[in-house]
Amino acid sequence: MTKADIVESVYGKVGISQKESAEIVEMVLDIVKKTLEEGETVKISGFGNFSVRKKRARRGRNPQTGEEIEITARRVLTFKPSQVLKRALNS
């Protein structure tokens, strides 16, 4: 499934055009992205939570060469599916 398929499922549902559908899907994704960029968690009930986690710097190793390297502190995006979704996937 791609963005185009999502636009297609929304299109015509409450009398909206294909163009409007594309516009809304784009806007929803944009708002979610901007919120995450600010470090705020996005909670979608029935789907899951997207949150940004801060990771401290740590020492790592290049698995190919064995060379020790510093992994810098960073922020990573994680997704935790909701219990409802987990159950739905396994029913």
Partner: peptide
């Protein structure tokens, strides 16, 4: 509409 977006993904 927003519900349809997530439901279609589910």
């Amino acid at each position: 509409i927003v519900d349809i977006i997530f439901d279609s993904m589910i």
